[in-house]
Amino acid sequence: MTTPAHDAELVRTATGRLLSATVKLESAEVAEPSQLPGWSRAHVLAHLARNADALVNVLAGKPMYASAEAREADIEEGARRSLDELVDDVRVSSSRLESAFASLGDEDWNRTVTLRNGVTDLASALPFRRWIEIELHHVDLGIGYTLDDLPGTFV
């Protein structure tokens, strides 16, 4: 059986792998299309940063995003940033989330939290949910990490 702390460690490892891969990109490559229709690599990175912040919000008992429109606007705004700014944003926002995970006590993990569109889950599921975001969007970046590279424990 997995634990939230174990899953949080998997998130940290996967985030490190993603960041190591993105810093190898040339600056112009961040504006190139990702494997997600209509999104550049910059959009994917901006989304990952805002998703980390959204999960911090959820753990604090706040809505993930102010609104669906604000979520989209934040991603669009972030997608205009440079590669260095985007990588730093993912790094810093992921660090905030890692700290939020680390601050939770055993009883906190059993709380019900509300995600987007009224979806509810236990706080203990959030590290696994974040791991999914990191792994699949790493593939979506189209920078050499493929479905075949996903860790066996993920698959």
Rank of each mutant, 00 (worst) to 15 (best):
M1A: 14
T3W: 12
T3C: 13
P4G: 13
H6F: 14
H6G: 07
D7C: 07
A8D: 02
E9K: 10
L10W: 04
R12K: 12
A14Q: 01
A14T: 00
T15V: 10
T15Q: 10
G16R: 03
R17M: 05
R17C: 03
L19T: 06
L19I: 15
A21Y: 03
L25S: 05
L25K: 04
A28V: 05
V30S: 03
A31C: 10
L36V: 14
G38P: 13
W39K: 05
S40T: 15
S40N: 09
R41H: 04
L45W: 07
A49Y: 11
R50G: 07
R50W: 12
D53P: 05
D53H: 12
A54L: 05
L59I: 10
L59G: 11
P63Q: 15
Y65M: 11
A66I: 05
S67V: 03
E69W: 03
A70S: 13
R71M: 11
A73S: 13
D74V: 03
R80W: 01
S82R: 07
D84P: 01
L86S: 08
V87C: 11
R91V: 13
V92L: 12
S94I: 01
S95V: 11
R96F: 02
R96N: 14
L97P: 08
L97R: 01
S99D: 14
A100M: 09
A102R: 13
A102H: 04
S103T: 08
G105A: 14
G105Y: 05
G105L: 06
E107P: 00
D108Y: 06
T112N: 07
T114M: 03
R116A: 06
N117Q: 08
V119N: 13
V119P: 00
A123C: 02
A123L: 05
L126S: 06
P127H: 11
P127S: 07
R130F: 01
I132F: 10
I132G: 01
I132Y: 02
I134T: 07
L136T: 11
L141T: 00
G142W: 00
G142L: 12
Y145F: 15
Y145K: 02
L147G: 00
D148N: 09
P151C: 10
T153A: 08
V155R: 14
